[in-house]
Design a protein around this nucleic acid. Structure first.
Lengths: 98, 98
DNA sequence: CATTGACTTTCCAATGTGGAAAATGATGAT
DNA sequence: ATCATCATTTTCCACATTGGAAAGTCAATG
């Protein structure tokens, strides 16, 4: 009798939720900027991105900038929808509190 | 440079978030009912409650019912405020997604 | 072709969550 | 009083997740 809906496990963890939210407000963001924003190491961001990519929530665009290869993170339509659904789920869940 | 605000770790985990939300809609709820609602074992609910109590988010009211002792869970004002703040934090974070 | 910069992967420690089972505490039965 | 029982609570463990450090990759110089 699990009357309570589950949250999307890919997007619920703080780091990923924050990343998705940050990406939702821009067209794209550089890897390094996202890493600093979240305050995590390269490896950690990379691993979160791997999961979000696998879920189809994020797309990585790699292109050279200033001679060096850089990566831009883009929230996909699916990722945006997932974030939206997640926020709405929480709002519904806590609707009365408002 | 953690420009992203952190979530309340006591209330963010799914089980506790769902519990807080569920409790926010009623005056109180029986232990067993909450356990079934969340779909977890007695021990797990008990442990979540311990954390939420320690944070001052939940109060346990024990009283006999039908000869046996039962426990009712009550969301405190502090717990309600924490839930509200959490929801608002997420909304702010994802404000653009709307 | 060695080097450097920008990630990615591997390895490992720390935490957190969950369940089963043992322990508690409060009754109710005997 | 003592025992059995029900409602939690605590203990013990297994497993999953998350995070960082360091080694590994790969493309673009020098």
């Amino acid at each position: 009798m699990t009357a309570v809906p589950q949250f999307d496990p890919v997007i619920h963890p703080p780091a990923r939720l924050q990343l998705a939210a940050a990406l939702s407000e821009v067209n794209d963001m550089e890897f390094g900027r996202a890493r600093d924003l979240l305050g995590v190491s390269d490896s950690v961001l990379s691993k979160h991105l791997a999961q979000m990519q696998e879920a189809g929530y994020v797309r990585l665009r790699k292109a050279p900038l200033g001679g060096r290869q850089r990566t831009w993170l883009v929230l996909t339509a699916q990722g945006r929808a997932a974030l939206k659904a997640h926020v709405r789920a929480l709002q519904d869940l806590a609707g009365i509190v408002g």
